[in-house]
Design a protein around this nucleic acid. Structure first.
Lengths: 232, 232
DNA sequence: CGCTTCTTTAACGTATACGCTAAAGTACGC
DNA sequence: GCGTACTTTAGCGTATACGTTAAAGAAGCG
């Protein structure tokens, strides 16, 4: 089994409360696969591990459950939710829809050159990483690209929703990073997308991004089937 | 100001716990506008009102906050979040994206006649309600139509996400129900959508639904501006 | 009269206590 | 040996207690 490397995250302000700390710690452990899918723990155990009482742990768990990262069953504690192949399919459909809309909106807004620059920078970084055979760097640049695109669309609700589903799919993405065909098409697709945005061609931007995610969805589904990874 | 009538909801099982009861009660009060946007209350007050201690109230508030219905500020209690005109715009963009995708998926699946029947029934009910000048019945049939469509698409995550944003927009929709032009086009659009689905024309289904929500978004924005309803 | 600083206090964050319930274990009958 | 009824107990849901802290009010100063 491939090892999942923790992806370095942006430095965050210190936790404002124990609830906040518990939430962030547990969320990180889940996204980094330190707590594997299916991992179970009782509230009391978590409290002990995190050095606090059950109260803040419970409140953090409610937040994580609402995000779909864990499930809380009375008397069985929390359980890190596995993401099934079917779930991944649904997530990619949903993301395809929302991100395509984001691309459309960005193109409609005809953003200034300095707003487009980070997209181009990310594209170049993906290219360079691919040539240097550095898949981790590639994945980070890819994430930067999509993140900036979603930020640029101006719809904060849409952006927040996209982030939530990225989180749920994070593990599977990292896992399949080295199992799937080299993402040689992605860079081209991103370049095309940027071109459509610069032209203000909203329909093209939407369609390029839709096709981009659709291809990703198919590749992922194929891998999960090939490796019999029904869930992760 | 128009009065908001409580929309009758499906009978639900008795609350499994106090947290659950608090959550449902508060959610209902918010959606039915019994607690108006901006309404504030302290945890202790809520506990007293709901006949329980602060603990279950707090846990229910965390859930409501995650759904975007309330905000919890330390020492200021919870506040029912107003939905600004800009928020409504964002919500409608998001819903337009997801529901259009749902329509597309439904058309692709070429559902059986008995799956399409409820859509047609809802369409007819909308028509009848419009002729009988019963806007409440119209709104309920409209909701049935869209709900069934989203259920039919087969993507539960997408459906759940759509429901969440419907909730946030619920008050504004009810409020503008009697302020906006009679929804004479909606029935036609729904009929067209059903036809596209029956033909299996996914692209048309997507486009019809997208245009449908886009029109709704524009109408709503116009009303909110005309009546200077910056938020509600 | 306005501004700053001190005091007060209300509300919350967290810890703890406790009873209830469902799951696990046990004994009994067949 | 297998199923059933009883007992036990772990874990949670909820209530309560308590220290902390930020907001509001009061007092002092310019």
């Amino acid at each position: 089994m491939a090892m999942l490397k923790p992806v370095p995250r942006a430095a965050e302000p210190p936790a404002a409360s124990l609830v906040d700390g518990a939430y962030r710690t547990m969320r990180t452990k889940i996204l980094d696969n330190e707590w594997a899918p299916g991992h179970r723990a009782l509230e009391q155990e978590l409290a002990l591990e995190l050095g606090m009482s059950r109260t803040p742990v419970r409140e953090a768990l409610i937040r994580l459950a609402k995000e779909g990262l864990v499930e809380v069953v009375p008397r069985h504690g929390m359980r890190v939710l596995p993401v099934s192949a079917a779930d991944m399919d649904e997530i990619y459909q949903l993301l395809g829809s929302l991100e395509a809309t984001a691309a459309e909106l960005v193109a409609q807004r005809k953003p200034a050159a300095r707003d487009i620059a980070p997209l181009e920078a990310a594209s170049r970084a993906m290219d360079a990483a691919l040539k240097a055979d550095d898949l981790d760097a590639w994945a980070q640049a890819d994430e930067r690209f999509h993140r900036h695109l979603v930020e640029l669309c101006g719809n904060r609700l849409l952006a927040a929703t996209v982030y939530n589903f990225w989180d749920r799919a994070h593990r599977a993405r990292m896992f399949t990073l080295r199992l799937r065909p080299l993402p040689v098409h992605s860079t081209r697709e991103h370049t095309n997308l940027v071109r459509a945005i610069r032209k203000g061609d909203a329909a093209a931007a939407r369609e390029i991004h839709r096709a981009h995610r659709e291809r990703g969805r198919c590749e992922l589904t194929a891998i999960l089937q090939r490796f019999k990874l029904a869930q992760m």
